[in-house]
Write a protein that binds this DNA or RNA. Structure first.
Lengths: 190, 190
DNA sequence: CCAATTTCTTGCCATAAGACAAGAACAATC
DNA sequence: GATTGTTCTTGTCTTATGGCAAGAAATTGG
């Protein structure tokens, strides 16, 4: 299973079979229970996690103290907060398991060494960043141009596991509305 | 001036003086007039631009055909759409000069060569991406948690040149409100 | 299996922002 | 400097969402 997941995630034309082997070998197993805090706010992130299964969310608090869910991570996704990992600053978010699950971690130092010795990996990393950047940019645009209802329907069709496992309040804060409003939207959809 | 701007922008502990020299030499001058379309939607971006002075905005259209300003770029900023440059896909936005200005461009191929031969440059690139990612993430959170008025005041204090040069309608679409609403916010502020 | 806690729904009223439209101010061009 | 188009303001009315609060439903822990 390790090979299947990781060769999928690190797929890139410039990463050779041998390079891929080195990358895979650098990952260690990690499993977690529902409710577990996987990475805690305030600490500098020292690894990241490639998710084999389970659902994780990241959240922070606004000036008012309300919890804001900033992202959800599902199967085959990379659970990371890049600012903390690559700028060596304290995590600004908590990462929290919504279900039991497991995945594969790689330490910062190991990743750095591979990043500088496997040219394909720095290309891969840049592509990954590019995609993530695009996602967040698109999210900003969607919040501006789409109704909360449309954004909910979008999650419902594209990321149904979020709807299944995350409580309404967390989905609401991710969408940028209150739990009350989301409850009404759900009622309305039927 | 070229040296001042570019050594500022490419400042990084792992970039040596010689590396910096190579990077600087790879940049070519580019100037533009107010209103000029600097990069056009539909084409694959083949270079990026480090801005010496002037103000540029990127915009796209929503499903309704309305223009949405997605970003503004000022002095010392890197004018780029990473998805197009690094994934070799057509630009999804137009980049449009709000004022006369000038800066320094570097071609994709040249950048790639430097990226893979100067280890510090791939670190620099990753840091840049990290920051940009953080900005967009923060923008999503701000749209959700702050009022349009608060976000306008934020631009007013932190990026006043935008308020000075961009027409109200473009600022409004960047904030995610209508020009009418922004006009009322301005009136209210006094 | 019951008590405690959390999550979700619903009602009522308040508010920020939108839609549309008319006109004023400003800028650009000949 | 008159004409034309663009940008900005203002008015009226509508709508999506929020704030607060009460109760129902579901989940969790002994």
């Amino acid at each position: 299973m390790k090979e299947v997941i990781l060769s999928q995630v690190y797929q890139h034309p410039l990463i050779s079979a041998e390079d891929l082997r080195r990358i895979i070998d650098a990952h260690h197993p990690r499993s977690f229970k529902k409710g577990e805090l996987i990475y805690k706010r305030g600490k500098v992130l020292n690894e990241y996690l490639v998710l084999e299964n389970g659902l994780i969310r990241s959240y922070t608090h606004n000036y008012h103290g309300d919890e804001i869910t900033t992202d959800f991570f599902g199967q085959y996704e990379v659970v990371i907060e890049v600012l903390s990992l690559f700028q060596r600053t304290p995590l600004q978010e908590d990462l929290h398991a919504l279900t039991d699950g497991c995945g594969w971690t790689i330490q910062y130092d190991t990743f750095q060494e591979l990043y500088h010795t496997i040219p394909g990996l720095s290309e891969w990393g840049r592509l990954w960043m590019t995609n993530k950047l695009f996602q967040f940019k698109q999210k900003s645009i969607d919040i501006i141009t789409q109704s909360a209802r449309a954004r909910y329907l979008d999650i419902l069709t594209n990321k149904p596991q979020i709807i299944r496992h995350a409580p309404l309040k967390q989905i609401a804060s991710f969408l940028g509305i209150t739990d009350t409003s989301l409850s009404r939207i759900r009622k309305d959809i039927g």
